[in-house]
Each structure stands twice: as C-alpha cells, then as structure tokens.
C-alpha cells in the first residue's frame, strides 16, 4: 500500500551560484497558488529529465517554512556522481518548468526539546537553515555548530552569522578548527536534543560520542541521504509484473523500474526511509546493500533489497514487484 501526494508543477524562479561548488534554486508554483507550508528539516524530490533518463533526487528545503511564495534548495555539484546534480548545475535555468513532490520530513525537530543543538558538516547545513527559521518564529532555543572545509566553501556562513549572531559557531578545517564534541555535549542542560547532518563519518562520530556520553537514543537525530551509487549494469526479473529489466550504470534500480512503468513505492530515494523495501524471490549473486534501512542480518540474508540505492552483481535476481 502506498499513497502518494500529487506532484507540484513549478517554474524555476532563480538560480544563484553560492560558491564554486554550490548552487541555489528557487521554485515557484506554475499555477500561481501558494506552496504548501512545511516543517523544518523536510525535503522534496525534484524530477529531472536528464537526457532521456528520468531522475528524482531528494534535496532538503532551506527556505522559511512559513514562506508560501516558493521553495529553495541548495545543490552541491558532484563531478563523479551519476549526473543529477550536474544536470541541475548545467541545464536548469530560470524560467524552466519542472515537477517536484510534496515536502516529506524524515528529520523533524522534536518539539518537546528545551534546546536544539545542531551539528552540520558542509552541504548538511541545508535542513538546519529551515529548522532555525522555524524555531525562530516559534521562539525555540537553538545553537548551531557548522564545520566546512574553508572560508570560500562555507555556504551561507555570513548570512547565518548576520541572522543568528553568537548562536552560530563556525569551524574551518583548513584553519585547524575542530568541534570539541566531548566538551560541547558535557555542557548541555537536561532536555537538549542533538541533531546532526553531514558526511557519513561525521554522523557516526557524533552518534557514537553522544552514545558514549550517555545521551538517550531518542534525543539524538540524524539525516543522511545517500546518492545512488554508480556501478556495473545488471539485469533484474520482476515476478509480479512479469518483466525483465536492465539497470544502467548510472541508473538506480528504482529508476529502472519506473522507466519500465512498474509502480514502485518510495519517499526519500536515499536509503533512509524504508518505503521502497522489496522482497527478493531469488538471488544468485551478490546484493550491494547501500542503504541505512535494513539490519545487518537482513542484509546478510539477501531476502530484502532497497531499490533506491542498492545494486546487484551475479547471474539472477528476482524481485517480488
């Protein structure tokens, strides 16, 4: 069972080069209606027709949740990836018509928190931008620790400083700055919730440090979208739809199913939400489980696969779809 919200037809209102790696895109509704409000930390899926390949990539919303005039996202260019970010950087221009999904939040604020302690690495700053805007209008307490490679690549550093002053703490890698996490966590008062978004290494570092310091599981929140990795092409049989499909090198299994008109559920398209979970009927070969959803035992059993990010190598893979 999967019930999807309608798509929203949008026009690209603005494309801004934030720094050499990051561009910001603003979308307004093509029908002139207001955008739905959303909650800080939500993302949208942006649909692209990338030279005949239909891509749907998730990006965190970074606009003000109460601003119904449009949505903004920031996209970091990934030169070695499969192309979604390159397409946005190179092909998408103001005035273009595109389609986006309704906002979905897999990284929401815990409204019970007395204080929100946020830790961002690089482009992981984007969900915090909408969260801080929402907390500001609700009167919530927060503090952000934002680590970036250098001043040039520190997206929105000046804007955030100007808006939130000493609630923003900056760390520049090439100047030798490092978040003193042990001290930071030790100094928090009861009722603080911890949020982290950034590279994989940072998330596991923050999670394990908080765990060692005795933070209850429910007070630590993280979000990491995986970009579907590229790989060797492979063939999959879909038992219910009675189809055999080939997944291209820069295509995900989910995209290949969609291209074959097979209705497959999804929400995050980044291995985090669990919505695309699919039963494996037969597997002669090796599944590259790239998701954060399945447990290690489930991964080892090869009875389930997450088509949004996982791939296959071997002779036969049959799925219950």
């Amino acid at each position: 069972m999967s019930v999807k919200a309608p798509r929203i037809s949008v026009t690209v209102a603005e494309v801004v080069e934030v720094n050499p790696l990051i561009k910001r895109f603003r979308f307004v509704r093509s029908d002139g209606q207001p955008m739905p409000p959303f909650s800080g930390g939500a993302h949208i899926v942006v649909e692209m027709d990338d030279h005949g390949t239909r891509r749907l990539n998730p990006y965190s919303l970074m606009s003000v949740p109460e601003d119904s005039s449009g949505y903004s996202i920031s996209v970091r260019r990934d030169d070695t990836g499969r192309g979604g970010s390159l397409y946005l950087h190179q092909q998408v221009k103001p005035g273009m018509a595109m389609e986006i999904g309704y906002p979905v939040n897999l990284f929401s604020l815990d409204q019970r928190a007395k204080k929100h302690l946020m830790i961002a690495g690089g482009i992981g700053i984007t969900p915090f931008i909408s969260q801080m805007a929402q907390l500001t209008s609700l009167g919530g307490r927060f503090e952000l620790h934002y680590s970036v490679r250098n001043r040039e690549l520190g997206a929105y550093v000046d804007e955030l400083k100007a808006l939130y002053g000493d609630r923003i703490h900056l760390y520049f890698d090439d100047e030798g700055d490092k978040i003193d996490l042990d001290r930071l966590l030790a100094g928090q008062s009861f009722g603080t919730h911890l949020y982290v978004c950034g590279p994989k290494g940072m998330i596991s570092w923050v999670r394990s440090t908080a765990d060692a310091a005795g933070w209850p599981k429910g007070t630590v929140h993280s979000e990491e979208f995986l970009a579907p990795p590229v790989g060797q092409p492979f063939t999959v049989e879909l038992a219910q739809s009675k189809k055999s499909i080939t997944v291209g090198a820069t295509q995900s299994l989910l995209e290949a199913m969609e291209a074959a008109n097979v209705d497959a559920p999804y929400l995050c398209r980044g291995g985090a939400c669990g919505q695309c979970e699919t039963d494996v009927v037969r597997c002669d070969g090796h599944i590259e489980h790239n998701d954060h959803w399945l447990s290690d035992e489930q991964k080892a059993s090869n009875r389930k696969i997450m088509p949004c990010v996982s791939r296959f190598g071997g002779t036969t893979l049959v799925l219950d779809r």
Partner: peptide, 13 residues
C-alpha cells in the same frame, strides 16, 4: 503503523 509513519502531506487516507 508502518504505513502511517510514511503518510504524506497532501495524501490523506
């Protein structure tokens, strides 16, 4: 519950 956790705005049931 599994279904509801993924319920989307704009798609009530």
């Amino acid at each position: 519950l599994k279904f509801l956790l993924k319920l989307q705005h704009g798609a009530p049931v």
